[in-house]
Amino acid sequence: MINFNYVQASTQKNVTDTLMKDGTAQIIAGGTNLVDLMKRGVAAPQKLIDINNLSLKNIEQQKGFVRIGALALNSVVAENELVVQKFPLLSKALQSGASQQLRNMATVGGNMMQRTRCSYFYDTTMPCNKRNPGTGCGALKGYNRMHAIFGATENCIAVHPSDMCVALAALNASVIISSSRSERKIAFTDFHKLAGTNPEKDNTLQRGEMITAVEIPDANNFAQHSTYLKIRDRSSYAFALISVAAALDMNGGKINNARLAMGGVAHKPWRLTTAENFLKGKAATEENFKQAAALAMKDAKAYRHNNFKLTLAPNSIAEALKIAAAM
C-alpha cells in the first residue's frame, strides 16, 4: 500500500470542498472495501478523508419516509426498530451480507460505493477496463461464473456485490447526494449505472459529491410479505450467485403490487419491473410466479461459466415470491 495523507473532516463542506479540489482524495468511512482495495494496489488515493465525525448516523422517521444517514452502520440499520418494522426486507438483506464484524464497520454509504468483487478487477496484473480503462475485460473470456447476465457489454461483465442495494432498489428508495453548492435527490435505481462504455465508473456520483442519506418511502404495504433470498456457494459469508428481493402487497390471495429486484446479475441492482407489472392484480399462485420469473429473464445473456444463472435466476425469483406470499 502506498502511504497517503490522512485528514479528519469536521464538516460536510470540508469533505466536498476537498473532493472538488483534489482528484486524488477519497472518502473513507468503514473502510471495509477501500482498505482492501488499497492493500491490493487497486485503489491508491493520495489522501483519505475520514468522515466518521460527521453527524450522518441517524435513522429517523420523517414525513412519508424513513431517512437513514450515510454513516449508519450496516449492523445498526439491520436491527433498527423502524427498519425491522417497516422494511424487514432491508433488514434481511443486510443480514445476508458479509459478517457481523464487517457489518459493524460498514456504512450505508460505503455499501453503495463498494466495488465489484470480480477477480480480474482485483488482480492488478490482469486486464480490466474498470480498474484500468482500455486494457479489456478479463472476465469476458475468462472465469466468469459470478458474472452478469443482464445489461453487460463486452467492456465489462462485472456485477455489483451489494445485498443492501438490491433491497433498497426494490423499496423505491432515494439517495440524497450533496456537494458544496447543492443537494440533489435521485432514485436509488439511478444511482448505480450499467457498465456501458465507461465501466470505470460504478455510479452517477459526480466529482465533489458525497452520499449523505438514503430515504425509503414508508407508504407501502410490503412489510408483511417480503423476503430476501440469497443463493451462494456456501451458506454464509459469501457473495451471491443470485439474490432476489421480493416484496408483495397482498390482499388475501391477490397481489395488489409487487416489488422485485435481483443481485448478482448486473452491474447494478437489477429491478424487475416487467415481472412486477405482470403480477399486479394476479393471484399469488406458483404458476403466476413462474410466469413472472420467465418474463424477468427476457434479454438475459450468459457467458461461458454462468449459463446456470439462466435457470437459477428464474427459479430463485419464483421461490422468493413463494416465500414472500406465504408469510
Binding site: T125, G142, Y143, S235
Partner: peptide, 25 residues
C-alpha cells in the same frame, strides 16, 4: 481452485472466492 488458462494464473486465490466451510455449513 481455479486457474485462468490464458495466463496460467490463479483467479480465486483468496478466502472470498475459494470457499471453505463456515459455521452455518
Amino acid at each position: 481452485g481455479v486457474i485462468d488458462d490464458r495466463y496460467g494464473r490463479w483467479v480465486n486465490n483468496n478466502f472470498a472466492d475459494y470457499h471453505v466451510p463456515v459455521h452455518t455449513d
